[in-house]
Simulated scan of single mutants.
Amino acid sequence: MRAAEPIRLLALGDSLTAGYGLPPGEGFVPRLQAALTARGRQVRMLDAGVSGDTTAGGLARLDWAMADQPQAAIVELGGNDGLRGLPPAETRRNLAAILDRLAARRIPVLLTGMLAPPNLGADYGREFAAVFHDLARERPDVIFDPFFLEGIAGDAALNQVDGIHPNPRGVERLVARILPAVEALLDRVPSG
């Protein structure tokens, strides 16, 4: 009997997915791949992380990212929209379009949320965070992780000197925290 083909898991994201500032093999995608392998999961990560990308950039390159025919997807976008103070309605439109395209292909999705930097004000912060929560509520089939950097943001010991991007310890904490949601996502991929 032939071994099952690994599940192709797309990670569509920005610098947090791409492993900005980290040595090769220490970013989110390779560390998640290693954690899944250690748990006996047959997965091939498809790294579609581009540093500096906005939700508009992610939407623009979604068709390119689909070339390897992913069977599941993690969508980690929005941080750069918040850093640039882009209108939350624009972020919402772009993410909704990404989620709709993935749903049309019957690709299960894990959507990760993001928070806006506090210097943009409380109103902007609430409106920005609501984008992710609203999209998840409207799409009950989407697995939702409310804040990608939960337990890492603001902790100098877990971040690079820029205070934005996780260091290797931060990535390990992130992967350990999000692993159950990723495994739930993989369990939604039809077998055979």
Rank of each mutant, 00 (worst) to 15 (best):
M1R: 14
R2W: 09
P6M: 03
P6C: 10
R8A: 15
L10K: 01
L10N: 04
G13H: 05
A18E: 12
V29I: 12
R31T: 06
L32Q: 07
L32K: 03
T37D: 15
G40E: 14
Q42W: 12
Q42F: 11
V43F: 07
L46F: 07
L46E: 05
G49R: 03
T54P: 05
A56F: 08
G57A: 00
G58P: 01
G58I: 07
L59H: 10
A60L: 14
A60C: 11
R61C: 01
Q71I: 08
A72P: 13
A72W: 04
I74R: 01
E76K: 01
E76S: 02
G78D: 07
D81I: 08
R92D: 13
R101N: 11
A103S: 14
R106E: 15
G113L: 03
L115E: 13
P117C: 06
P118G: 00
G121Y: 07
A122W: 00
D123M: 07
Y124P: 00
R126F: 02
A130M: 06
V131Y: 04
F132I: 03
D134G: 05
L135P: 10
R137K: 13
D145Q: 11
F147D: 00
F148C: 03
E150A: 13
I152F: 04
I152H: 09
D155N: 15
A156R: 13
L158E: 03
N159I: 06
N159A: 05
Q160K: 01
V161H: 14
I164R: 09
N167E: 11
G170L: 01
R173F: 08
A176N: 08
L179Y: 09
L179N: 06
P180H: 08
V182G: 08
E183L: 08
L186C: 09
R188K: 15
V189R: 04
